[in-house]
Simulated scan of single mutants.
Amino acid sequence: MTVDLFAGISVDDYAAAPDRCERLLDSPPTFVASETEAVREPGEHRSVFIEGRPEHAGHALHTVFVDGLDDLAAGLTARGLTARGLERAKRETCPNGIRKATYRAPEGNGIGVGGAPF
């Protein structure tokens, strides 16, 4: 069975969202679906769309697991996410040793990145 992921994030300020996403994912949108929706495909069968829907903004929380979590975190800092409105809100180590950092946008949406134990 093939499983595709198409995850959505509603934002209140669509004009600012593409810059934050590009800094987070280190790539421009894969395609722009409309004037208020952009889609990125971080991997095969995986898509994340950002949509300007202020009435629904602030409730998303998605987590991706990556190899090289420390390198990714350093890259996020180097790309200036904290200066562009995406702040690291929480860093934790789960009981099974998996590490996770959650970044939050001004409207409350959260993007978590996780990786292997130390």
Rank of each mutant, 00 (worst) to 15 (best):
M1Y: 01
M1G: 11
V3I: 08
D4W: 12
L5Q: 03
F6L: 12
A7L: 15
I9A: 03
S10Q: 01
S10P: 03
V11S: 12
D13V: 05
Y14N: 05
Y14F: 15
A16M: 06
A17T: 13
A17G: 13
A17W: 00
P18M: 08
P18S: 07
R20H: 05
R20W: 06
R20G: 05
C21A: 15
D26I: 07
D26W: 06
S27E: 13
T30K: 08
F31Q: 05
S34V: 11
T36L: 02
E37N: 09
E37I: 15
E41Q: 11
P42S: 09
G43M: 13
H45S: 12
S47R: 10
V48H: 01
E51G: 14
P54C: 14
P54N: 11
E55A: 13
H56D: 04
H56R: 00
H56Q: 10
H56S: 06
H59N: 06
L61Q: 01
H62L: 03
V66S: 02
D67S: 14
D67N: 11
G68L: 02
L69I: 05
L69P: 00
L69G: 00
D70W: 00
D71T: 12
A73L: 15
A73F: 12
A74Y: 07
L76C: 14
L76F: 15
L76T: 14
A78I: 12
L81C: 15
L81N: 13
L81Y: 03
R84W: 01
G85K: 04
G85V: 07
G85S: 05
L86R: 02
R88H: 09
A89G: 12
K90A: 12
K90I: 07
K90N: 15
P95L: 06
N96E: 04
A101L: 13
R104D: 10
A105Y: 01
P106A: 09
P106D: 11
E107G: 05
E107F: 00
G108H: 02
N109V: 06
G110Q: 15
G112C: 09
G112F: 03
G114T: 01
G115D: 04
A116T: 13
F118T: 06
